[in-house]
Design a protein around this nucleic acid. Sequence first.
DNA 1: CTCATGACCGTTA
DNA 2: ATAACGGCCATGA
Length: 105
Amino acid sequence: MSEQSNFSERVWHIVAAIPPGKVTTYGDVALLAGSPRAARQVGGVLRRLPAGSTLPWFRVINRHGRISLQGDDLFRQRDALEAEGIEVSDAGEIALDKYRWEYDR
DNA sequence: CTCATGACCGTTA
DNA sequence: ATAACGGCCATGA
């Protein structure tokens, strides 16, 4: 009965399920949301999150294991990840092999 | 309805 | 390793 009506809602549910200390990619979220080619739109959804949202948007990075954001947003995402034990280089690189979230079920 | 945008990705060089 | 290019497609104006 939990049929999600639209892409944005599916993205919200998936991102909300990423456990602390883990990350996933835009492409993986798109895949789980049922639109394998809509990785770009995942970023669009996260960019338009309502102010005050508690969604852990910072646990989504790109396929290279790098933070896609620039400038101040890059620093904020890096700090949020480091705060839960994820190692991030100054350039914004994360070891996907080590921190990638495996969705099962 | 059309059009522009873009927190992406795979391929190619 | 980096960079350019084209395709992709949900969203908002």
